[in-house]
């Protein structure tokens, strides 16, 4: 500190300073201004660029086939997340159990399904008929249509990641919590449901929210097996009309809208499970 500032601060002892003047943040203002200008230019160029064909975007944005595709993307995402986390929770329980066989099998599952690209897995299930022409006395191709294949493939993939997320969440709960619950005579189920899981959720929700948004967009990969999700339904249109860019914009805007809604939801879910922790208040 220089003597210059010292003399400034050293006001007469009895005079209480009347107010506090924050330091100027010129750099911050300049940076913010620059970024806003650049952003404005970018938005302007996108909005005015004829090639985006915003009128076409408007035409198809709420068209029946796009909405059907959006619907499929949404319920498929929900179903895959639910099944994936249910299976993932079982795998995590297996991984943490005292039973060495369950531990090894859970570990092996996660290892295998995290190693396999989801695309490879989908194509594999799609062609499973080559390995097992009939299942339960029914022709495999009839039993496993593209949508079923998509559900199975995405769920198995999701479960491997969910297992790790859930396991991490459980491990984040203090061992003393379980002991206290045991000492109070709470049943195994009650300990898990009322004590461990709600506390584990604090560390499970943020990565799970990430996974949910990833899965929402990740489902678009099933267009390779011709399931009419959001992406595939706009592809069907532009293969006919060649309006590639505006139709991709239709899909993109929908993905952005749904992701935004999910992010808001995640905020509230996090707040719910954060109750009682200092950080949340």
């Amino acid at each position: 500190m220089s003597s210059h500032t010292l003399t400034k601060v050293a006001a007469p002892e009895d005079a209480v300073p009347s107010r506090i003047v924050p330091r100027r943040r010129t750099g911050q203002w300049t940076a913010a201004g620059l970024v806003l200008i650049l952003l404005g230019l970018a938005v302007n160029s996108v909005a005015r660029n004829e090639a985006f064909q915003w009128d076409v975007v408007g035409d198809y944005f709420t068209s029946a086939s796009v909405l059907r595709g959006l619907g499929l993307t949404l319920w498929l995402t929900g179903l895959v997340m639910a099944l994936g986390f249910a299976l993932g929770a079982l795998l995590a329980a297996g991984r943490l159990s005292g039973n060495p066989v369950l531990r090894a099998v859970s570990w092996g599952y996660v290892w295998l399904f995290r190693s396999m690209p989801i695309l490879v897995q989908l194509l594999f299930w799609f062609n499973i008929g080559a390995l097992y022409p009939t299942l339960f006395g029914v022709k495999t191709v009839n039993l496993l249509g593209p949508v079923t294949v998509a559900i199975i493939g995405l769920t198995l993939h999701e479960a491997a990641y969910a297992a790790e997320v859930v396991r991490g969440g459980i491990l984040s709960v203090d061992r003393g919590q379980i002991e206290a619950a045991e000492a109070l005579g709470l049943s195994r189920w009650r300990r898990w449901w009322k004590i461990v899981l709600p506390q584990a959720m604090r560390s499970i929700v943020p990565p799970a929210g990430n996974m949910l948004i990833g899965t929402l967009k990740g489902t678009s990969i099933i267009s390779v097996i011709a399931v009419q999700d959001l992406l595939y339904s706009v592809q069907l249109v532009y293969h006919r009309t060649y309006q590639v860019i505006p139709l991709l914009m239709v899909a993109t805007l929908w993905y952005i809208i749904v992701t935004s809604v999910l992010s808001v939801g995640q905020y509230y879910v996090e707040r719910h499970y954060g109750r009682g922790s200092e950080r949340a208040r």
Binding site: A180, A183, L184, P198, Q199, Y273
Partner: peptide
Amino acid sequence: QRTRIGFVFQNFNLFPH
């Protein structure tokens, strides 16, 4: 049996949630 024996821990171990 444990419900008839109260246990108080050094670190309290209250349920924070």
